[in-house]
Design a protein around this nucleic acid. Structure first.
Length: 566
DNA sequence: CCGTTCACG
DNA sequence: ACGTACGTGAACGGG
């Protein structure tokens, strides 16, 4: 548990105080006594508590028996106002909005070898630094409060941000159990395979080199073995990305084939099987990620330390990592994921008649797309046609270009262009959505999602063709991705309330992976709990802000580890 | 500290 | 003429 070195407070602009609790020079007030006095204030629902990233403070206090209420967060206010414009850390906000550069943390604790921990900072210095934080936060709050009102964004902050503070805090505190021994065995298995591949690679290259070095690998492939024709990255170095290596492997070259396998296994080992155990908290024996509420431009969450939103699934070796995420004894993991959420949103957002009909009839959307694009009966759609149609649907959500599509499905740009023409002919509303979204964005500098959240697109009128195109695709994608994230936020809020209302305290929501939620529940109750989860997630179709004209669909899976939930 | 690569939705 | 699919975070190599 993190040590509480001190607390800074402000109740009036220009005035702030610092309460030292655990400085090493012992000039402290007693932590227990101070918290005893503060607890009724912090828990009082009628007294506002303003913080910058207050989820952090909530967690610290929760571990000391205080459950803070009535929380406001300047980081989240800035996020609602300015997502896509700037980052939302206090340093940045102070400089932008208060034209004041705060005392830097580095200034106080030093850098490198001479760096000290905050409890070693002299109290007077700590006071200046920490009290300034409190003052800045209060000043930012007053400003953002007005700005949210003026921009009519208060609702977004109140409905989609504030409730998530406590929900995510409790998820982080709960954490998830990891089978450490299982991961150790996986690491050993990966290492053996890596060693074999290394030998095979060096046999071909006739010399040892760092396989992980793109520079050295490029040198080998382009200059020594000369198996690759010149392909350069943006910066002019030899391209060694997976797609380049795949091309060469397809032509029959073994070295790139082995390097691809080596990279995949190294990634799994270095990033997951070796590293996840280091994140196990010895007190709880569980892994506690941090969910970032203000990291993305679209409204999505992000996860870090460790990132549990990018745990492998696509390959068999990768999915083994998921098997290490387990439920406690007599408990099960429940996963609940929204099916085709972004295509559903697009069909509602752009009012795509044919797609809406298909979702209402619960049809296979990619097969339908294939039948439309390739002008054939849906029963005659083969797997290759469906694969291409699926890629088109994904591409549409990303703000498609004929080049991107061609690259993705391995056809000429002419052919990709023909697919797209055919697509837009069948779904003209999508083309209309794209051009009207870009048009709106060009004159306003931002886009809104279905619920009214804004994403600023700062380079939409850039004179550079590539930058502008990139920003146009982001403008098309943001309302789709962003609306989906709002749906998930509402579902999380509704489920939390429902579990509370029904006094179901032994089921915990523990992870969110954009369109999927993971719960840990008593094994005997999973049927009952699953029904509640599914009902709440589906019910988001109707809310005070929007009623969808398509149904939402949720898949539920239950198991004793994450690896079996798909 | 940045660029490249690759894991996820 | 140009030539990228959208949104993230982590690890690594090499200045």
């Amino acid at each position: 548990m993190a040590k509480l070195v001190g607390i800074s407070l402000s109740t009036k602009i220009g005035k702030a105080c610092y309460i030292p609790l655990n400085h090493k020079d012992h000039q402290n007030l007693n932590e227990k006594e101070v918290l005893k006095i503060l607890k009724p204030i912090l828990e009082d629902v009628s007294i506002k508590k303003i913080g910058q990233n207050i989820k952090f403070d909530f967690i610290i206090l929760y571990h000391r028996g205080i459950s803070m209420n009535s929380m406001e967060d300047t980081m989240l206010m800035s996020y609602v106002l300015d997502a896509g414009k700037n980052r939302h850390n206090m340093d940045t906000l102070s400089q932008i909005h208060l034209e004041h550069k705060p005392i830097s943390y580095k200034e106080i604790v030093g850098v490198g070898k001479k760096q000290i921990s905050f409890d070693e900072v002299e109290i007077n210095k700590a006071k200046d630094y920490a009290a300034e934080d409190a003052d800045i936060t209060y000043r930012l709050f007053k400003k953002f409060f007005k700005n949210l009102k003026a921009e009519k964004l208060t609702n977004i902050y109140e409905i989609f941000e504030k409730p998530l503070i406590k929900i995510l805090s409790l998820m982080e505190i709960e954490g998830i159990k990891i089978n450490e021994g299982f991961l150790k065995k996986l690491s050993d298995k990966f290492q053996n395979k890596i060693d074999k591949l290394e030998k095979d690679i060096f046999k071909i290259s006739k010399k040892n080199f760092k396989i992980g070095s793109t520079k050295q690998l490029g040198e080998i492939m382009y200059n020594e073995l000369k198996i690759s024709t010149l392909k350069k990255t943006k910066k002019g170095s030899f391209a060694t990305s997976a797609s380049v290596l795949e091309d060469l492997a397809f032509k029959g070259h073994l070295l790139p084939k082995y390097v691809l396998e080596w990279r995949q296994l190294s990634k799994l080992k270095n990033t997951y099987s070796d590293t996840l155990p280091e994140h196990i908290n010895p007190k709880t024996n569980r892994v506690h990620t941090s969910f970032l509420l203000a990291a993305t431009s679209t409204g999505r969450l992000a996860s870090s330390d460790p990132n549990l939103q990018n745990i492998p699934i696509k390959t068999s070796d990768g999915n083994d990592i998921r098997k290490a995420f387990v439920a406690e004894k007599n408990k099960s993991l429940i996963s609940a994921d929204y099916n085709q959420i972004e295509m559903r949103i697009l069909s509602d957002l752009a009012d795509v008649k044919e797609l809406k009909k298909a979702f209402k009839n619960d049809e296979d959307i990619h097969s339908l797309t294939a039948s439309q694009v390739f002008n054939t009966d849906i029963k005659k759609v083969n797997s290759d046609m469906r694969r291409k149609a699926k890629a088109i649907n994904f591409g549409i959500i990303y703000g498609i270009s004929q080049y991107g599509l061609a690259k993705q499905i391995g056809v000429s740009t002419t052919e990709a262009s023909e697919f797209l023409n055919s697509y837009f002919l069948k779904f003209p509303e999508i083309k209309e959505y794209m051009s009207s979204t870009i048009k709106f964005c060009r004159k306003s500098g931002y886009v809104n999602n279905i619920f009214g959240r804004r994403t600023h697109i700062t380079g939409i009128n850039d004179k550079n063709f590539n930058i502008r195109n990139f920003q146009e695709r982001a403008a098309i994608n943001a309302p789709i991705q962003g609306s989906a994230s709002e749906i998930m936020r509402m579902a999380m809020i509704r489920i939390s309330e429902k579990l509370k209302d029904n006094k179901i305290y032994d089921t915990k929501m523990i992870l969110q992976i954009h369109d999927e939620l993971i719960f840990e529940a008593p094994s005997k109750d999973t049927t009952k709990i699953s029904k509640i989860i599914k009902k709440e997630m589906t019910s988001v179709q109707n809310s005070e802000l929007h009623s969808f004209t398509i149904p939402l669909s949720v898949d539920i899976n239950v198991g004793d580890n994450w690896g079996v939930l798909h």
